[in-house]
């Protein structure tokens, strides 16, 4: 009775099956995680948008600029026909219309007068007046263009200010750790005082949202966001010295 000698059946098949199970498991793990990694990619794309979005917002308005510069010539074209009409109706309308341009362009009037005096013909006078008016109109147009340019500059500054305010808001909002049970219509208003360089001097709560946990979270986020992003142009800092900011949990 050789009871001590046991035959253990199927040693090899068992080993092969064990290896098979493991290779299946690892294949599952490998491909499963690979699949997930592809799913992550869109998420990281949205993260990229955070930093690039403001720049893209700035870019489009630059094109309208060029388009807006073009319009000033249009008023000139419209003005010219007006001048042509008085030339045709020489006798009557000229005296009535002449006084009008004079007060407008007294500075340019002398030039026109000097040119006008040697040639004493009345129709020519009308023409000279018209020319003077044309010059005046052109200058007015130039002034308008300059004003428009200044407005453009102001708008550009406003845009930069808006962009950086949005960046500041975004940075702070990213740092807000949402407390639970915040009402969707909660609205906390803060005044943030900045130092040049973006350091947060202090954050004063102007209006509570009614939820102290949310207020505190916002305040902590403001202090945590130090330093805040400021435009590279230091002359714009006066716009950021004191910022009034509104925070809503839904944004």
């Amino acid at each position: 009775m050789s009871a001590t000698v046991y035959y253990e059946p199927n040693k090899l098949p068992a080993g092969i099956l064990a290896l098979l199970v493991h290779s299946i498991f690892f294949a599952l793990l490998y491909f499963g995680l690979n699949w997930n990694r592809h799913a992550y990619l869109p998420a990281t794309m949205t993260v990229q948008l955070w930093s690039s979005l403001p720049d893209e917002v700035v870019a489009p308005p630059v094109i309208p600029k060029a388009e807006e510069v073009v319009p000033p010539p249009q008023p000139e074209k419209i003005v010219q026909p007006d001048i042509v009409i008085p030339e045709k109706k020489k006798p009557v309308p000229v005296p009535v219309e002449v006084p009008k341009p004079k007060p407008e362009i007294k500075k340019t009037a002398p030039k026109a007068a000097k040119v006008a005096k040697p040639k004493s013909d009345t129709p020519k006078l009308g023409k000279q007046n018209a020319e003077a008016r044309r010059i005046a109109e052109q200058q007015a147009a130039l002034q308008k263009a300059e004003q428009a340019r200044q407005a453009e500059q102001a708008a550009a500054i406003g845009r930069v200010v808006d962009e950086y305010q949005a960046k500041i808001q975004a940075k702070i909002r990213r740092n807000i750790v949402m407390p639970p049970n915040v009402a969707n219509d909660a609205r906390a208003e803060f005044m943030v005082t900045l130092l040049p360089g973006g350091t947060v001097l202090n954050a004063v709560r102007l209006k509570s949202s009614g939820n102290t946990a949310y207020d505190d979270a916002v305040e902590r986020a403001i202090l945590k966001s130090d330093p805040l992003p400021l435009p590279p142009d230091a002359t714009l800092f006066y716009r950021f010295r004191e910022l009034d900011m509104v925070f809503k949990p839904t944004e």
């Binding site: 059946p9 199927n10 098949p13 068992a14 099956l17 064990a18 290896l19 493991h22």
Partner: peptide
């Protein structure tokens, strides 16, 4: 853990065959 898992699976199949037999 990989080693242990391999061994335990080997024994699982070994025992499965043995007990069925």
């Amino acid at each position: 853990l990989l080693l242990v898992s391999l061994m335990s699976w080997w024994y699982i199949f070994l025992k499965m065959f043995a007990i069925r037999n």
